[in-house]
Every structure is written in C-alpha cells, then in structure tokens.
C-alpha cells in the first residue's frame, strides 16, 4: 500500500442515516443507496471530510478495532476500500 490517496467520488457528497448497527447512505452524485457496516461507515465518514491515504485509514481502523482483532486492520482496510471502490462510492486520486 503505497502513499496513494482516496476520495469520495464526485463533489455532491453523501446523505447519512445512522441506526447504530447499520448505516444507510445516499450518494448524491450517482443516486445509489447503500447499507453499510459500522466500520465501513467510519472509514467513509473520514473520507467525506477530505482525501486520506491508506496509512491514515489503517490507523483509524486500528483505533476502532479491539487490540487483537480477528483480522488485522491492514486486511480490513483493503476489504472495505476494495468494496467501496467497486461500488463507485470512493476512488483513488489520480496522481
């Protein structure tokens, strides 16, 4: 994971509804609606306030996740970011 950086697609932003165990978002640009797991929602909330590098996101996850998580924050971040990218919610900033 180099120093590449992520951002939310488009400039229109997201609308949120937080039910604790599940978080619903509406992407104003694409018009898509998703139901997120709280961890993914935390990552996305961080990205909504501004572009972040992989390192930033992994450290954010390690704060949220218990000391000996089932899966290391690194792998967690990769799964979450990969899925958010496939759904056109976030994208890599073209260097």
């Amino acid at each position: 994971m180099s120093d590449r950086r992520w951002q939310v697609c488009g400039r229109a932003g997201l609308a949120w509804v937080d039910w604790g165990g599940e978080v619903a978002i509406y992407h104003r640009g694409s018009g898509d609606t998703h139901l997120l797991d709280p961890l993914a929602a935390e990552l996305l909330r961080a990205l909504e306030s501004g572009p972040r590098s992989d390192a930033d996101l992994v450290s954010l996850l390690s704060e949220l996740v218990s000391p000996e998580p089932e899966r290391p924050p690194q792998a967690l971040a990769e799964t979450i970011l990969g899925e958010l990218k496939r759904l056109n919610i976030i994208e890599l900033i073209e260097s």
Binding site: C9, G10, R11, A12, R28, G29, S30, G31, E91
Partner: peptide, 13 residues
Amino acid sequence: ARVVHWEVNRIRR
C-alpha cells in the same frame, strides 16, 4: 440534471 452531472463526472474520470 443529476444524471447528466454524474455522467459528465464519470466521463472526465
């Protein structure tokens, strides 16, 4: 209008 704005965003990308 929303669809066109998004389409243009994706075309530029």
